[in-house]
Write a protein that binds this DNA or RNA. Sequence first.
DNA 1: CCGGAGCCGTCGT
DNA 2: ACGGCTCCGG
Length: 755
Amino acid sequence: MGISGLLPLLKSIQRPTELKKYAGETFGVDGYGWLHRGAVACAIELAQGKPTRKYVDFAMHRVRMFKYFGVTPYLVFDGDFLPSKAKTEASRAKRREESKKIGLELLRAGKPSQAYAELQKAIDVTPEMARHLIEELKKADVPYVVAPYEADAQLVYLERQGLISGIVSEDSDLLVFGAKRLLTKLDQHGQCVEINRRDFCAVREISLTGWTDSEFRHMAILSGCDYLEGVSNIGLKTAYRLIRKHKTPERVIRMLRFDGKHQIPESYLDDFKQAELTFLHQRVFCPKKRDIVLLTEPDPTVDVGDMPFIGAPIETEIARSIAAGDINPITRQRIVVPRSPGKRRISQALAPASGPPRSLGKPITEYLKKNNSSRRIPLGEMDANCFAIDPNQDNAAANVAPRPIVFPLPRPYVEGIEEPASPARPYTNNAHVLRRRSEPISKLLGLDQFETSKDRRRTTGPVIQVYQDPVSSSRPPKKARLCDDSAVEEVVRAAPEKSKFFSTTKQKKAPKKADQLLMSDDSVEEAFRSLPDFDPWHSAKSAKPADEFDIFREPSPEAQKDEPLSAGPTPKSQEDNADDSVEVPASSPVQHGPAHEDHARNPASVTPLGELLEKFSYETAKPRTRFVHGLPTPASSMQQTATPKSINPPNTQTPLLTPLQRIGARALHRGRSSESKSSTPRSTLPSNKPKNVDSLPVNPAFVPLPKADLEEVEALNKPLGSEDQIIPDSDGENDADDDGPLRSGRPFDLSKFLY
DNA sequence: CCGGAGCCGTCGT
DNA sequence: ACGGCTCCGG
């Protein structure tokens, strides 16, 4: 487990978002997680040694989802265990073995459900399974890499190298490793939560303003992490206070020992340092250099030899083969892929020994069986089947496939680039091990209204989510988001595909629709309620809102589906855009190109509907702004400085700003604009301003989190950028643009998404 | 604040 | 059966 409790602590900076907002970018993902899910689904088959590859199907479904949203997944698989974790893994392997045994007995006893539950515990993702998935990834030109050790460190390295623009994971440890942009809680609909390192300064639960990565890391380790058990009775909050007060771990520990309230092992300080060094310098594979490097280069004075815990050095050629998935990172034996290309020949040659290759499914079983045995297992374990599968492709495979090693570049991965480290060979199975401690990322979103995972999405992103389901048809857009929604809907209509996608993924649609609608309404209402503080303003709005909503609804009753797709430009879309611009003008210049169009549209947006929308937007926006202002964050300061100009200035900066920061900037802009123009003071009150956002009278503190989230979400969703300008781009547009081209080109195959 | 107990919702067969 | 979340006591 990672740092449990970390996510809740960062709740205030978590913003609901959607995968589609990141179209055009490459995100690192943990391949293990995906494989594990699939493996659980076929636990029985695996336990019985049946040749199943369902886990690959599951993972590929996820891959298709990413592609569908225009996001390139860069899969990262775990490698060997770090020395410090070897023991835990060994014990886990033992438990899994026992579970498997018990599970099979239950199965024989005619207790399927219990057996299944037990077998789930026996599931372990093996390098062989990863290899099976890798074969599919190659076919789909999806970049991947097998880390020499932990995927977490590898993911952060890729992010630092710019090979990926963010990481999709449920593991909060990534933040301790130094991840800058983390997407968690990704669901089948593409909804997720973004956590930006840059927003740390805006965390409300604790003041991390000015905190360095080092201090943050110390806090995390002190409270307990994967590499070091925490001191009892010291959780994150306490650790935070200790670090804040004493600055260094040494002093904190000294102090703790001094007052004797805590039991601190003799070796604690050394262990602490070791844990930190592991976070800092763990070995990873550099796709550019095609060799092993340290996540962070240590100070020259440090002798790497003194840090065996960061993982043993790995020879370049071996590291490349591991990275490519050709050899088992744990046993260092070649993994033979049955059907895959060109390996067979080699594999046969290499495979030699032991047993015949087994079918894909079997390996797992074997693994389970022997899993207790030593890590590096003899070839014997291999399945005969492996070879059997595809002899044909050998030639081609051998030539072409020489194993694309990791793809150095994000999207444009070309197989040709890769150089085959070595041809595949015999394969061994065994290795097993599981890794991944999953970390609970607790929920965060739930705040809004509903919490179930399913509902959550919708609720969370109240606005956004609402429209998402394709099936669901009408759903009044709640706020600013509405615009997007409408656009989406249109899109959906045009292309039923999405709906299919959803349907395929799940059948909840119908129910969801209803829920969503309800939710949306509720959310709206809630939003209004939240406004209460400013009476004048609020009252006026509250009255109108309903009407406005109605209006919205009518137009977009049917389809709200979700997603992307372009929607063609439609009248509504314009409205939407306008709304967006008002509420959340953000659009990142960097990522999205289409923002410009929005400008043109804006004018149009100023229609009655647009006004209504704007109102909504205000509502939503206000909380945020307020929120932002309240925070003493650098971002706010930066933005303020920029604000003078008001509209544009931020754009240049925006790329650097995080969503929260952007929001703050926007708020400022709005406020100014409003002040200058309308003369309403933003900070204060409630006077009345119909439009101006700044008018938010409510105290940030009072505003319910959910609201803030919504707003944030919207703002954040947009790519970088734009502050309050009236650039409408963003969601609606981007989506439309992005989706349009892609979608238009291809036929809509919903089938892709189906499992 | 921390940490354990209990409740709830999910997943699969 | 598991994971997450809330509630409760120290």
